[in-house]
Each structure stands twice: as C-alpha cells, then as structure tokens.
Design a binder for these strands. Structure first.
Lengths: 262, 262
DNA sequence: TACAAACGTCTCTTGTAAGAGACAATCGCT
DNA sequence: AGCGATTGTCTCTTACAAGAGACGTTTGTA
C-alpha cells in the first residue's frame, strides 16, 4: 500500500529497505494470508510480505504460540488460527448490526435467488462483509473481505453519503477512478452520484465492475443520517425494469428493518 | 498506588519489570478484550494489560488503523474490529471440520433441546469453539472461547486420548487439578479417565464444573486415532440413565459423521 | 549419489521502538 | 468556580528486537 515511512529526517539518504516494526510485520502477514486465502510456507510468506526470513520465522512462531496462526496439516505451512476465529465471533457478538445484517442477507438471497451482500467501510475502503451466493449458475461474487475501490460500486456511493467533496476526495485515489475495463470516471461525476444516491435513498450501477451485472444497493443507518453499511443485490445486467424495481423495494424494506434510525 | 495484589496479567508468562515487545502488547490486548467481552477505555486497557499508557495509545492507534480494533460508539473505547471478523471467517472457510461441526452442534441442540458444544484444544487448553444454547430455562453455558482447565471437563479427557503420561502431565498445572468447588483431583485418576475414555469412545462427567450438570462428550477424529475436537451435550445432572444413553448414541452418530477417519 | 534449493535455528550488531514523564485540555465532582 | 482525575499528544533515552547472514539439515531432481 501507499504508506510510507516518513522520508523525514535529513542527513544521509536512506535507501529503501529499513527496519520494520514487528507489529507491522504481523499486520502485513495477516493481510497477506487474507489475500492468498490459503496456507502458505514460511519461506514464501517471507517473500510475500517482503520480510527477512529470520524475522518471519520469529514472528510466525509467536503468532502460532498465541494461536492467531496455525501450522497447517502437512506441517510447514501457516494459516489463520482458532484465536482469530474466536476474536471474530466476539466482534460479531458485540455488533448487532452485523449479526442481524448477516441474517437479512442470507434471507434475501434465499428469497430472491440473487446474490446478496452486506457491505461496510473498512479503513476507508469498501468491503464485502458478508455475502450469500444466490441460485444462479455462474455468478461468482467477489470474495468476502475483499477490498474494492469505492467508485466501482453502488454501495460505495451510498457509504460516502453525507460527506463533503473534500472528504470524498481524500478517500479516493487516482487509481480508484479507473474501472477494471480501463474506463475513467470523473471525480465530479462520482460526487454527483453520491449526492443523488443520498437523496433517493438507493443506488443502481450497471456494468461497472464487470459487463454482465447490475448492482442494487441501499443504505443501512446506525443513526439518523449516518450510513453504517449497505445491503446490495447483484443481478444480471439485463434484469427487467420491473423486476429491478421489485427487488429494490424488497431491499429497502430489509434495510429499514436493520437501521437504527434514519 | 494501586497494586499490592494480583499482578494479574495473564497469558504471556513474563516476569514483571522490563520492556515488552510490541507484538506481545498486541497479543495481551487482544486476549484482554476477549475476556472482558466489551469495549473498554484506553486508559483502563493500559491498566488491564499492565502496560504504560503511552505505549498503549500507540499500539491501539496502529491496531485501529489496521482495522483489528475499532473505536466503539461513544468514541473513547476500543473493541475488536471488522478485520478480525474477516480473518475469523477466513479461518472458518479453510476449516471443514469447524464449519461442519458448527452445523452439527446447532442441529443437535435443536433436536435434543440440550445445550450442545464443539470443543477443541487451543494452545494446550480446552476451548469451547462453538456452542448452541438449548431450550431449557436457566442453563447458562460458559461463553464461547472460554478456556477451562482440561481436568474439569469430559471433553478434556477425550482430547488428551493417545498421549502418554508425560505429555498429559505437561499440559496440566497443579491448579488445574483443583475443581471450582475446591475438591482436588488426582493426576493418576485423570490419566486413568483418559485411558478409559479412549477405550470406550466417549466420556461422561457428573457435577464436575458445577453441581447441577452432567456432560456427555464424544471425540471427533481428523485422522485415525487423532482427536481433533469433541462434541458434547450439557444436561441436568438428574437426567435418566435411559435418556443419557439415547443422547450419547445420537452424539456418537453425529461425531462419526464429522470424523475423517477413526 | 551428487547438487541445488529450501528449511529451520543461531549469533551478533545496530537502528529504533518501548517506555517514562511532562503537558494542555477535558471531565466530573462538590 | 475550584480541584483532582483522566484523556490524548509529544519528546527524549536506551534497552532490545529486527535483520544479515552463516550453519547444518532436509528436501527433490537429474
């Protein structure tokens, strides 16, 4: 990611690869495992996070001892451990909205047969927090936990509702405005979309992330005016106006049920 | 000054005074939040993990930025964050046994009306990985993720099946042999219990953790002979012989379905 | 059976992060 | 308003962890 270490201090040009804090190594490792989605050898892990092997071994050992990571079956690969699962469950327990949102999403996809998702802002990025597959043959939804540029999604437009232009600009990088197929979005258009979405209380995007789907999203409020999450349906791009309208209606009902006020 | 008593601290077996590694601070913080089960102010957190305030602020900031922790509603308390939830889901996804075990447990408690649990070893300690409440009025089961001394439980006897005396001794501290009500267990008896449990393929304990319940447990194998988890039912201590037998039968069926071989 | 590559452990050095503590700003009492 | 306790931020020092790298061992493949 961007981030950097402060170029800061004068004197002596620092070549790139200086020492990294152990804590950051941990964060990088977790994030890396999250993207690979599978157990990985420690050597490869070291390469993957660009850390020295010796350091990686030490850090991994600590994490395994603590139960945040586990050695996978064969013996020399690591992946997430039980502790992370337990902490994750704690999070769910402490978070009504997530708990109920998961249920609504599951229910919704069973009811409509379409892929349904619960989305939230996660350190400034759009994140699919829970998704339920739907019954259509090929639809592959992006993996849970995947982070996607805000401007690519309908939910993104809702999640930023209520922010002013400066805030929005701060949350969107240049790259985010380039769609997967290479098209460019204009920041101005994005800002307008957000305002519209806010006013109408929903957002529909067609063929943004890929050419075959349409995304219907509605906001979930944690307090009047504060958008905490969105629920969305991913449907074929050629879904009829009528069905789209019906689905949107359903979605709004569900979201209203989740919202605390607003 | 405060102090004067329980150093409290925790998990990292650490002598008092000196500097602590940032990584360990993180582990302590997570563990502490897991035991409190609620958002907590940073100052209190610092006290709780026995860390300097300045350090705690820095560490917490990192973790919040990374999304492992979140500032809770009011603004100056922290608790687990979405990232931990996502990592936890990754763990579940990569772990067939857990995923299916959760379902079986849910099903079992619905079917029998009794509290049902899935248990595993977690860094050498007995851990309730998932539990489903049952329909009885008062039964309060211990919280998920709670770590309990192995000798206090039926599952503990099964989880250690196949270990020799030395291994067992290493996993059990002196304190573990003292029951909540003050009674002492003998290590020898415990070892015998384990052998018996292994031979019969189940274990029943009565009034061990508390005076009102009986615990029926059976092993789940990840490979022939290797006990990876246990499923158990927590029932009133006065449950009839007959019903107990029936429940045990059910339990064994379920567990067999989960096991990979054995 | 030999050779190269990856694994896991150790040692030693030095850059740096953990911690002590000072500070201003709030909060919460009475 | 007055006082003590708490909060969040900052600075500076030095104890110590991150990293380079060497070593012996275990792959696997030619």
């Amino acid at each position: 990611m961007q981030d950097g270490n402060a170029p800061a201090v004068s004197v002596g040009q620092k070549t790139g690869g200086s020492r990294e804090k152990g804590l950051n190594r941990v964060l990088e490792i977790l994030e890396f495992l999250h993207t690979t989605q599978r157990a990985i050898g420690i050597g490869d892990l070291a390469k993957g996070v660009n850390a020295p092997r010796s350091t990686t071994y030490t850090v991994v050992r600590s994490l395994v001892e603590a139960g945040l990571l586990e050695m996978a079956g064969d013996g020399n690969r690591v992946y997430f451990g039980k502790k992370l699962y337990l902490y994750g469950m704690d999070y769910v327990r402490g978070n009504d909205l997530l708990r109920r949102g998961r249920q609504e999403v599951d229910h919704l996809s069973r009811e409509t047969g379409e892929t349904s998702e619960l989305c939230m802002l996660q350190s400034g990025r759009y994140t699919i927090v829970h998704s339920s597959p739907g019954t259509r043959p090929f639809r592959i939804s992006s993996a849970t936990g995947l982070q996607i540029p805000l401007p690519w999604t309908a939910s993104g437009r809702l999640l930023l509702a209520g922010m002013d232009r400066a805030d929005i600009e701060a949350m969107v990088s240049e790259d985010d405005l380039t769609l997967p197929d290479g098209r460019r979005l204009l920041l101005d258009d994005f800002v307008t979309d957000i305002a519209t979405a806010r006013a109408t209380g929903y957002c529909v995007t067609s063929g943004l992330v890929d050419a075959y789907t349409k995304c219907l999203a509605v906001p979930v409020f944690s307090a009047p005016g504060k958008v905490e999450a969105t629920m969305c349906l991913v449907v074929p791009i050629d879904t009829s106006e009528e069905r789209t309208g019906n689905l949107l209606g359903l979605l709004r009902d569900r979201a209203a049920r989740l919202s605390i006020g607003g």
